[in-house]
Nucleic acid binder design. Structure first.
Lengths: 203, 203, 203, 203
DNA sequence: CATGAATGAGGGTTCATTCAT
DNA sequence: AATGAATGAACCCTCATTCAT
């Protein structure tokens, strides 16, 4: 998994159109992967919850792997678009960073959004070949937005760490929130973002 | 995994004596879990690498689950002892924190034999019943050392965040390093610890 | 397969008209059966090569079995007609036999003619019920031509074996040529026919 | 199958020891392949007839393919030894040829062992890689015995055809007997051998 | 303690066939 | 006629676990 940083420059990947049937399968598959993990989820489980028979799954995806990959790719793409949208036209890089963190947090914590979780947790279940494709996708929009924002802060001397290192520390800090934050707890996502912000950014 | 914080107060758990044969099996099992994950590791893989036949495994452990559980429990216990040892007699809480982070980092990166990554990565592969036991163990010594250290820093006004929140942010930041740090990279574990230290601790 | 000789006397069988669409499907199916065998050929393979979708196949044939049967029946019929044409008006039974052998050989070796091959090789893939129909067809014209010719030679004392036995030995010898003759080899089909002729027929 | 003649010079192939359990599985597998063909025989069929469960098969063979291959290899080896034994010390090449033909015929028709049948009929079901191994084995002893015998007859001017061609014609004639000879028919294997003998050999 | 054959449930996947559109 | 999603049984194979030796 250390190749997580070794990415190429431009995105790629067809992904193909996602029909309603495919979308439904993806949705239940993601839920199941979230609940039980990829390995422990059987294609029969997925089919049953999608209301079809297991054989029918393979009409839409040619393997269980492809289901995982497609879910991850779609999530990556959606997160990229959200990140771009969140930072577009935001002048202050501090505000841009807050927006990016909020976007990442809400992807992770959104009720219907087990997808972001699966993206991280099932990385090891993904074939070598598919990983590269996801990494390319991720680097295309999502990580570029982060990079630009952190670089701007760094250039202004407002970051306590090197921007590359800051990115990784923040990412880990946010991702882990999955394990301890509670909806009914005292801390909401915006407060958490502020908390992290004041830790990493001066002033 | 959000129950990771909901722990009882006192440790418990027999674990039983660990014979040399058991230790050998545990060591190779941990290696394998690290390489392929729990689900993708077969008992035959473990037995083969341990130099025995698969049937013989079950004279030492009554199930594959028990191997995972025992590995996790032993790791947890060892980490607790290491944390206590690392902080004992250290006057400056800043230094104590650095020691705790270094211990956690080296366990995560398998520089010692503690295999902390299994604790995080294979948490979901552990049966419900075994999870509670591990959580109890973990809370016993390990987390207490962290708590005491961070509380001391907080009381001295040297922490940028609430100690409870700081613990979680740091834990996430450190755990994620597994995904991006490279042995041959420019950053070593000690430098990473310093990097995190200066982010979270004033001065 | 020993029932190969237990045939009734007269032909029968509708077979129905073969539309151009059907003919195309049969052609590609035969090629596929030849290349991969009946069992390993999927209806999707056939449909794809025929330029249609698998569901559409079943508008022309009611099952995969029927495709095999129809191909075999058509081949059998064509070979029968060729045999009759080849021997009609040939006075010398030795010449008639040469003509029959050449017809059989060229059916087997003809470039577009995997059909004769399939007829032999996929016999076991044919349902019991369909086999009888093919055998009847075969007995109708094709085998009668052979029988008449060999009987004539036998009556003239020019055969080294009983005509019935000779037929089977010759058939085996010719069929096996599939496995060892090469287009670019030193032996052509006519020479092979002569070779067999001089072995079985005196003078 | 045209590569059936393109063989290298020397045998090879470990095959490994054949335990009683393996032998039993091979025996029933061969019967089944004979009755239904390789593709139509399921591993559960084999296991059931062998009196074990399907999973246990894979203790002895790592795949269904390997069962086929092992059966073919064992048969080939046995036939080679039989051919050598049958011709050893036989002075008259005519008698040697009769012995070889009888050996081939009884392998094809042997009541207790359909293995030689499978060797021919399921050739296409064998993986490319395994075919080469079988061909090598076959050429080692079996075909050499045939070649030597026919060459001797040819050198003495007692063959109606070139020895190489004669081998192929005879092989086809004998193999085909499987399709028309009946146990209860008027012709036994020895008579059939004589019949072929007088066709191909002068005097 | 170790062996290794056997278990048997269950895994992912294939595929001929059906049928509403 | 053609489509293509859906079916559902069957396929080969895997694997944690048991147990007689």
């Amino acid at each position: 998994m250390s190749e997580a940083l070794a990415t190429a420059d431009l995105p790629a990947l067809p992904l193909g159109p996602i029909s309603p049937a495919k979308a439904r399968i993806l949705a239940v598959a993601v839920d199941l992967f979230y609940e039980r993990g990829y390995e422990r989820t059987t294609v029969r489980d997925i089919a049953e919850r999608a209301g079809i028979l297991s054989g029918s799954l393979f009409h839409h995806f040619k393997s269980k792997q492809e289901i995982l990959y497609t879910a991850m790719a779609a999530t990556t793409q959606a997160m990229g678009e959200a990140a771009v949208a969140a930072t577009e036209g935001v002048g202050d890089p501090r505000e841009a960073l807050r927006a990016l963190m909020l976007a990442e947090l809400s992807a992770i914590h959104r009720e219907d959004g087990h997808a972001a979780y699966v993206l991280v947790d099932e990385w090891r279940s993904l074939d070598e070949e598919h990983r590269a494709a996801i990494l390319k996708l991720r680097d295309g929009a999502y990580e570029r937005a982060w990079r630009d924002t952190l670089d701007a802060l760094g250039a202004a001397g407002r970051l306590r760490n090197n921007p590359r290192i800051a990115r990784q520390l923040i990412r880990g800090a946010l991702a882990w929130s999955r394990h301890w934050m509670r909806e009914d707890g005292p801390l909401d996502l915006a407060s958490l973002a502020d908390e992290v912000l004041k830790t990493f950014v001066r002033d």
